[in-house]
Every structure is written in structure tokens, then in C-alpha cells.
Design a protein around this nucleic acid. Sequence first.
DNA 1: ATACCTGCAAAAGCTTTGCACAAGG
DNA 2: CCTTGTGCAAAGCTTTTGCAGGTAT
Lengths: 162, 162
Amino acid sequence: MKDSILERVKQLFTDYLKEHGQRRTPERYAILAEIYSLDQHFDVESLFTRMLGLGHNVSRATVYNTLELLLECRLITKHQFGKNLSQYEKSFEYKQHDHLLCEDCERVVEFCDPRIQQIQSMMGDILQFNITHHALTLYGRCSLLAKGEHCTHYQEKRSLLK
Amino acid sequence: MKDSILERVKQLFTDYLKEHGQRRTPERYAILAEIYSLDQHFDVESLFTRMLGLGHNVSRATVYNTLELLLECRLITKHQFGKNLSQYEKSFEYKQHDHLLCEDCERVVEFCDPRIQQIQSMMGDILQFNITHHALTLYGRCSLLAKGEHCTHYQEKRSLLK
DNA sequence: ATACCTGCAAAAGCTTTGCACAAGG
DNA sequence: CCTTGTGCAAAGCTTTTGCAGGTAT
């Protein structure tokens, strides 16, 4: 099933590259495959490191280049969660969704609410804009925590950092 | 009336600085005053340049330091509109609001919809988070524009750049 | 008087760019 | 072949940090 999604995504990427006179290089497909093997958000550096770890001798420049192409054909989406660091996630066959961030452990939870689409189209009408997309992020902390306490994911996070 | 707001804001800043054992320096008040004279979003570099233009010999470091303090006492808010550049705006007595961005001319329109608060508190309940704030940004282009056309604000924008 | 703050400049972190070589079409 | 893509390294930009001197309290 996973493979089937990967195959379909590769096909879409191929179509896009052909249509836009871009070359189908092994690096680009390797990056696409790696992204679709992940189930979390990622940043450029972690993807780059991961590629090296897998034995692919790609450069950061190629990673950035490929991410740009994947954004253009909507196979990934890009987020800025309030920091100067771009986060990405695969987006094929994923419902449009929004994010809730724990500012303690930086865990990201996804959610969906139809009212956001309503707001989007209503505001488009009122303000005379063709709205193409939106980004809603809720910021908070896991409930039940006293001030100074950390949520259960905090320690995991700490151990991940360096 | 404007002065009255500035005075109240200065007072709040003074209170905050005293409470937190921070010094009340002329640089900090000059930056606060300049921010509250603006009616638009701004980034650090434009604020810095503006301060120099007004004859205040402040450094970038001080601007960053002061913005941090003003964020802490909620006299300004910070946004990342999908780019690696922080944007700020004054926030005293401004209703919580969200933003609509024209991707053609980069104009920012503010709007307000009560449903967002509802979503925020509902998601907080469901996902067990204490949600402190949110950021919703709608991205689009002024309506009625054909592909390739630019909206009326585009030329203004072009002339501002460089 | 003495912490803390400031200005300056260097460093850090993410992203973009330039160039010579490699490789897709 | 010829053009585009890649790897590498340098440069760009925004933001952070270190330090010597200045200033609020």
C-alpha cells in the first residue's frame, strides 16, 4: 500500500518534470522517496543528513532545488511555525489540515475543522481576494501541566537535541 | 488621542521594566515610540534604518533586545508570513486579528472572525492543550486579476523595493 | 559604585548563488 | 552534443553573541 502511494507520487513528479522541461535525475527521485518514507515534519538539514546517511551523495543545493520543485507540483507543503526555520511535510492524499504546536516539547499535532474553509471563502468574498491556501497554527502547552513542569514529550525532545 | 495611547503604552512598558528589574533606557523608549508611530507591519531592518534616519544612534542588537522585551509584555506581536523574515506590529488595544496576504503585491489585510476563537477553544479541549494564541494567515491574490496581471498595489510595491 | 545595557563587530544559522564538471535527453 | 543539474564552496541575509566601554539606579 505504501509502495503504491510512492509509485503514484513518483508518476506525478515525472509528469510534472516532463511538462516543465526538467530532468528526471536519480537525486530528485531519491529525495522524493525519502520524504515519502517519513511520517513527520522535517527541515532541510535533517533531510540532508538523512540522505547522506543512506549513502546518497547529494548536496544541500540539490535538496533545496528539489524541495522547490516538489512544492511547485504540490507534493509537499512548507510551514513556518514562528521560527526562522522552514519545515516541510509530504502532502499527497493528505487532507488539508492545520497544526497545534506544544511550545514546551515542540510536538506537532494535526487537526482539521471545516469552519476554516468557511472563513477562508467568506473572507475571500468580502475582501475581494482569490484565496489559494491558508495556514492556521495554534500554540499552547499540554494541559494539566503546572508552570515549570514539562510535558511527557519534553524529555524525548531533550534527548533528540544533540 | 495618539499621544494618549503612546503615553499609556510607555507607562505599561515602564511598569514591565521595573517589575522585571530591567533598566529604562532612552533607546528602549525611542524604539517603542517609533513602533507606535507606524501603522503597518515592519521588519527589524526597516525599523533599524528608520531609527538611524531619525538621528538615534542605536544598534541592531539593541533593536532586537528591545523587540524581545516588547514581545514579552505584549506591546507588539511577531509574525512569520511564510518567509524567513520576522514581521512585527504594535498590539496595544488592537483586537486579536488575523491576516490576509496578497502574494502579488504583498499587501497585508487584517480581519477578524469569531469562529477562530471557537475552533481554538474546541481544539484545546479535544486535544488537551492549553492554547495561548494562534496565527491564521490566508494567502491569495486580489480578485478579478487575470493570470500575469498585477493588482493595483503591485506598482507601489515595486517602487518601494530598492 | 556596580550591575546591566549599548554599540560594534564577529559569528552563527539558514538559504541562495557561482562555477566547473557530470549527465540527461 | 548541448543544455541543464549537481556538488562544492563562497556569499547573502537575518539573527545571535562576545566584549569593552557607557549609563541607569
